[in-house]
Design a protein around this nucleic acid. Structure first.
Length: 434
RNA sequence: CGGGGCGUGGCGCAGCCUGGUAGCGCGCGUGUUUUGGGUACACGAGGCCGCCGGUUCGAGUCCGGCCGCCCCGACCA
């Protein structure tokens, strides 16, 4: 895209409402605009990041055999009355009425709905296990939205649901999903650590939350450095091997890891290689047995023909929250430092002198060769403005094209994450970008 | 939901106490200037002063009500 005709309203000053760094930078870099408390519009740059994250999440779900689908945002209250959660959920649930005065709601999650859909068509044990997911907007009417998209009321979430014949099988599904999560966060460029968690309002007793490390994270975390050395690539762990999954699960849950609430000084004292930091919860997985299948009447015929109530689990990733969380993890005083995997553009081309024949020619050449992967700053702005905006937007690479170098076909390549720069000719620069 | 704060051009703010022609910086437009880290100067455009009502000759300013947003706490992907 050419920046001169792209809606990327960068701000020199921080809007008063933004407090934490990711929120400030998302506003300043022109990623989002707030529409109401906890509700945001995603502008072109932010939307690209969100989609990149979503795609990585999707690919790792697909990789373990989960099936993608899409459930609606609006749900009938009736379903929630069957599970008993219509009354239990409280004012966090946004309740609305349609024109026929029927009670509806904007879904905060989809256990009831998926269970209902599943029970309508799955009738035999032969069809289990199954894992389904969707990536959909949710709404939770938080009393106090804050931290920008990290604690919004409307948010994009990947939620998956597993259906198994019995507990043993459900545990395998659970572990498989944990594996997908570790791979997902690894691809996003962050360290994520699974920590045993309270099961919360969704219920159940096998539950982990995934904390990514960020210096400005909301809670303190203590963990064993063993987590930094683990390999859960497909080569090391097969999602189809129960033995692999068990070994993986033990590996992930044995070393010490805890947030404030569960930190245990005695156990911590026995950890040899200690790591402390701060973290942000970006995912949560639960096994909850027949909590929904029983009240909603989900049952399949077992081998002997008698009905069996499937065991379920649900697995969430806060996709929109991750945008904020990643910025918390990757930024400096000048702005965002996107990890390569999620950056809105791989590179920014900074034309320091629009109108200069050499600069224009070189930039156009680069822009064409990088296809859709570059944001071309073709604005008639001063160099300083372009540098500042590029740093703020956080493109992994900046290709600086100025009249001095351009005359000799040279450009300066800057790596945002490390700050390192080098003078290269066009081909070398492109090669470096990969 | 308890406690606190704030709503004034796009952004950041002053003006309100003590009513009397709506200001500043940034940004935006034009021109000159500058030309590798947010250049300088000049001119210019842009405002239901959150909304409704009241007091007053006169309300951004005083009074009442409402709405919105932010922060701390309790709660959460």
């Amino acid at each position: 895209m050419r920046l001169s005709h792209t809606l990327v309203p960068t701000l020199k000053e921080t809007p008063a409402e933004a407090q934490i760094v990711s929120h400030r930078l998302m506003l300043r870099a022109g990623l989002v605009r707030q529409t109401a408390a906890g509700i945001y519009a995603w502008l072109p740059l932010g939307w690209r990041v969100l989609q990149n994250i979503e795609q990585i999440v999707r690919e790792e779900q697909d990789a373990i055999g989960a099936q993608e689908m899409l459930m609606p945002t609006i749900q009938p209250a009736e379903l929630w009355r069957q599970s008993g959660r219509y009354d239990a959920y409280g004012p966090e649930m946004l309740r609305i009425k349609d024109r026929h005065d029927r009670d509806m709601l904007y879904g905060p999650t989809n256990e009831e709905m998926i269970t209902d859909i599943f029970r309508q068509s799955v009738k035999s044990y032969r069809e289990l296990p199954q894992m389904l997911y969707h990536i959909q907007w949710k709404f939770r009417d938080e009393v106090r939205p804050r931290f920008g998209v990290m604690r919004g009321r409307e948010f994009l979430m990947k939620d998956a649901y597993s259906f198994d014949l019995d507990y043993a099988s459900a545990v395998v599904s659970y572990r498989r999903m944990m594996l997908a999560y570790m791979r997902t966060f690894h691809r996003l460029g962050v360290n994520a650590i699974p920590m045993e968690a309270e099961s919360g309002p969704i219920g159940g007793n096998l539950s982990h939350e995934f904390i990514i490390l960020a210096p400005t994270g909301e809670s303190r975390v203590w963990y064993d450095a063993a987590f930094e050395r683990m390999d859960y690539s497909p080569r090391a762990v097969s999602h189809e091997s129960e033995a692999d999954l068990e070994r993986f699960f033990v590996q992930m849950t044995t070393p010490y890891a805890a947030t404030d609430e569960k930190h245990d000084e005695a156990a911590w004292a026995r950890v040899a290689d200690k790591r402390e930091g701060r973290g942000i919860e970006v995912g949560h997985i639960f096994y909850f047995g027949t909590k929904y299948s029983t009240p909603l009447g989900l049952a399949v015929a077992g081998r002997d023909g008698a009905p069996v109530t499937p065991h379920m689990g649900s697995y969430g990733v806060g996709v929109s929250r991750l945008v904020g969380a990643l910025i918390e993890a990757f930024h400096d005083d000048a702005g965002i430092k996107w990890p390569d995997a999620v950056a809105p553009f791989r590179a920014a081309i900074l034309n320091l002198k629009v109108g200069d024949a050499n600069c224009d020619r070189l930039c156009e050449d680069l822009y064409a060769k990088l296809r859709g992967n570059a944001l071309y700053d073709d604005r008639e702005e001063r160099a300083g403005v372009k540098f500042a905006d590029a740093d703020l937007m956080g493109h992994p690479w900046q290709i600086v094209v100025g009249p001095r170098g351009a005359a000799n076909g040279m450009v300066e390549l800057k790596r945002r994450m490390t700050g390192e720069r080098q003078e290269l000719d066009i081909d070398a620069a492109l090669a470096r970008l990969g």
